[in-house]
């Protein structure tokens, strides 16, 4: 990688808290009632992310406490963590798409002239959206197949499909975010990384609209 990116941020400015996303300031790129729905979904995703992580910590510790203090392991602990990590991942990819946080290698992109960047961003967002919709469809298909097979989680003894219901939904919502980003780039004069974030890697140049 010979091309240089933007210069590093000044060290003093770097701290974890600067990166926090304030959900109350999130404004949907969608008009009217669709926008209201979008804001509600954004908020639900955020809450699921936080709850998922907290529950995972509690669940894992409860297993330790159970093993030492009660002499009994929590059998479903591992399965619950599996359910939570799937929930976190698929609520999170949509949330990340919404806030332009997916990892990408932007060195060549950033070096391109503005019109090319804009064209590339439309193509990137559209193709990414297509991939997400495709995976949403086939994960729905997979979900249906799992329902039909009736496989149980061995410890919890509940159907395995319960823990993967988020998967098609997560891909669908992520696909919608990228589709909207493609549209936003077509109708607006700026280059948008997501519907709410103007392109640029460095947080100091990002604006939540």
């Amino acid at each position: 990688m010979t091309l240089h990116d933007k210069p590093a941020a000044i060290p003093e400015m770097i701290s974890a808290t600067d990166d926090d996303i304030d959900d109350s300031r999130y404004v949907s790129g969608l008009p009217g009632p669709l926008g209201v729905i979008d804001v509600v979904i954004a908020r639900i995703e955020a809450v699921l992310l936080a709850l998922g992580v907290l529950l995972m910590a509690l669940n894992t510790m409860a297993n330790v406490v159970g093993r030492y203090l009660l002499g009994e392991s929590i059998f479903f602990s591992e399965e619950l963590n599996q359910a939570l990590i799937i929930l976190i991942t698929f609520a999170g990819i949509s949330y990340a798409a919404r806030h332009g946080r997916h990892i990408r290698m932007s060195a060549f992109f950033d070096a391109a002239p503005f019109p090319l960047r804009k064209t590339m961003m439309v193509a990137i967002a559209a193709i990414t959206a297509a991939m997400m919709f495709l995976l949403s469809w086939y994960s729905f298909d997979y979900l249906m197949a799992q329902m039909g097979r009736g496989r149980l989680l061995p410890a919890l003894q509940i159907p395995q499909w319960w823990i993967i219901v988020w998967v098609p939904l997560g891909f669908l919502l992520t696909g919608l975010q990228y589709a909207l980003t493609a549209i936003k780039n077509l109708i607006d004069r700026d280059v948008w990384l997501s519907t709410s974030v103007i392109e640029g890697y460095d947080d100091s140049t990002e604006e939540e609209v």
């Binding site: 093993r67 392991s73 059998f75 591992e78 410890a155």
Partner: peptide, 10 residues
């Protein structure tokens, strides 16, 4: 039933 504490581990 054997009296152990069965412990699930990957």
């Amino acid at each position: 039933a054997f009296g152990a504490t069965p412990t699930p581990l990957p």
